[in-house]
């Protein structure tokens, strides 16, 4: 595998007049101790669109994604610099309350991680912690979010069964339902289908396409077909750098950068 120049990048700018932005990063860098893992990524994410982050493993796409709702705060030696603009505020600043912010920028992880609670409690746990006590509202919330996550029909008869009793694909859709029950603006997904079989994967993909009307979605995937199938925009990461950002169609047909072309045509990865 050849080495590509990290200086050779093409980030297509989105004109804010034509594209409403939900999130934007400016020169975002992530350090683990002294090691710089992300070298200043500036990307824009359009509202109600799906943006896919692709790249080989270790390219930094997950690290970048986890910075967007500051999950990297959890990592002992991690440090994130640069700006993350959300609703005109830099949410990478100390002034921002991370807990409040995460209610609006939700996340679904690589491995399904439902709580060891019932399906009903999995979805209502956080809303109840935030003060929602009304049983009717909670019931409705469970139904709506499970329907949106395309899980309702399979579990509606027994919402009291443990979330862990579901199959892997169902668990992941439960996690999506749990995240959208919070009514976030933005949904971050970190390879949500990588631990799933092909049938569950396509179910999750269908779910995401249906969610697009209400949520801005940013998804990390190592599966290029998946990116091509569901996303509107794609950014290619290589060695901690956002090498190229463009409409998905263009990334997969006429990429501007050699590294992108080699990756999407399967020359490495």
């Amino acid at each position: 595998m050849q080495n590509y120049s990290l200086a050779d990048t093409y980030i297509k700018p989105l004109d804010p007049a034509e594209h409403e932005l939900a999130l934007e990063t400016k020169n975002l860098k992530v350090f683990y101790g002294d090691h710089e893992a992300i070298h200043g990524a500036s990307l824009q994410f359009e509202r109600y669109k799906i943006t896919a982050l692709i790249g080989a493993s270790g390219s930094g796409k997950s690290t970048f994604l986890r910075s967007l709702n500051r999950m990297n705060d959890l990592v002992d030696k991690a440090r994130v610099t640069g700006e993350i603009l959300y609703r005109g505020l830099d949410i990478n600043s100390d002034k921002i309350d991370v807990y409040e912010m995460r209610r609006h920028i939700g996340m679904v992880f690589q491995r399904p991680n439902p709580f060891a609670k019932s399906i009903y409690d999995n979805i209502t746990f956080a809303p109840r912690r935030f003060g929602e006590k009304n049983k009717k509202v909670l019931d409705e919330m469970v139904e709506t979010s499970l329907k949106q996550a395309a899980l309702w029909d399979q579990v509606k008869d027994d919402l009291n069964q443990s979330g862990l009793a579901l199959s892997g694909g169902q668990q992941q859709r439960l996690c999506i339902a749990r995240a959208i029950a919070m009514k976030p603006d933005i949904l971050l997904l970190d390879e949500p289908a990588s631990a799933l079989d092909p049938i569950s994967t396509s179910q999750v993909e269908d779910t995401l396409l249906a969610l697009k009307d209400h949520y801005t979605i940013i998804i990390v995937t190592h599966n290029m077909q998946q990116a091509a199938r569901i996303s509107d925009y794609t950014s290619f990461f290589y060695s901690g750098t956002a090498i190229e950002f463009d409409e998905t169609r263009k990334i997969f047909t006429r990429p501007q950068i050699q590294a992108t072309e080699d990756y999407v045509s399967g020359h490495f990865g």
Partner: peptide, 17 residues
């Protein structure tokens, strides 16, 4: 907007933490 305001205040969760 209310979300902006909420993010600039100390949330209940932050106090609990």
């Amino acid at each position: 907007d209310p979300i902006q305001q909420a993010m600039l205040k100390k949330s209940h969760a932050a106090k609990l933490e």
